[in-house]
């Protein structure tokens, strides 16, 4: 029987995340992957502004705290500064990656920048207390859409994987979820695929991970998991949207 142990990819710092939030699981998946691929010592993580802003205290690799939305630009600077064996990833929420940092995300992908974006989509701004995100679902109630997101007024949610997959520089784009153990295992596999694509220098990779926010959704952790299954998965279909892991983008 394999023993369940803490990964050395994470530090011993206690995490600040709310009960039932899936950030902790995703941190672990990323950290385990870096260890299993033997690249923790070559990894540089770029952390966002948002709930994961203090992830530099949790990942046991070198980290940079980036301005809001700018992580892919910072990652570009780091990746191009270091030998190509370095492994550079960003860890960003939906507001960071799909609103204020849309240009940075799109252009890093268009350049085929050999970095990996870990994109946490929980359909809400968590750290600031539950405002509408670019990924908030139609009719979803948030602090700033108190009657539900009216798309005729607030616009439509953005499906980042579908959009980024259209770019020639994108090598591996997949959307996964974390609402059941089975989905967590699939998320781990996707994250590993993305880092392998980077290690093999095949181009830009992004894994979108559907995540929960019980605090700001106003639900129990268990209900939040169901809400992902019933509401998010139908709108944000899971799957691989682009796979050039064999041939690469260039």
């Amino acid at each position: 029987m394999p023993e369940f142990k803490k990964t050395i990819g994470l530090t011993d710092a206690p995490m600040h995340y709310c009960p039932g939030c899936t950030h902790g699981i995703i941190h672990r998946l990323v950290a385990e992957t870096l260890v299993e691929l033997g690249v923790l010592g070559k990894a540089i993580g770029i952390v966002p502004v948002g709930c994961a802003v203090m992830a530099y205290d949790y990942f046991n690799c070198d980290c940079i705290q980036a301005p809001h939305g700018r992580a892919p630009a910072v990652a570009t600077g780091v990746k191009r500064a270091l030998p190509p064996e370095s492994v550079v990833f960003t860890y960003q929420g939906d507001g960071d990656l799909a609103a204020i940092g849309t240009a940075e995300t799109v252009h890093a992908a268009a350049r085929g920048e050999n970095i990996t974006l870990i994109f946490i989509n929980n359909a809400i701004y968590g750290m600031t207390g539950g405002q509408m995100a670019p990924t908030t679902l139609p009719n979803q109630i948030t602090q700033t859409t108190p009657k539900g997101r009216d798309v005729s007024q607030a616009g439509f949610p953005i499906k980042m994987c579908e959009m980024i997959a259209t770019l020639d520089g994108a090598a591996y784009i997949e959307r996964v979820s974390t609402h059941t153990p089975k989905h967590v295992m699939a998320a781990k596999k996707a994250i590993k695929n993305a880092f392998k694509v980077q290690i093999e220098k095949k181009g830009f990779s992004m894994i979108e991970i559907l995540s929960t926010c019980p605090t700001n959704w106003g639900m129990t952790p268990a209900d939040s998991l169901d809400w992902v299954e019933e509401n998010m998965v139908p709108f944000y279909p899971l799957g691989v949207f682009k796979d050039k892991s064999e041939e690469g983008v260039f």
Partner: peptide, 8 residues
């Protein structure tokens, strides 16, 4: 921000 990354 690329400068920030490279300087880091």
């Amino acid at each position: 921000n690329m400068v920030l990354g490279a300087a880091s």
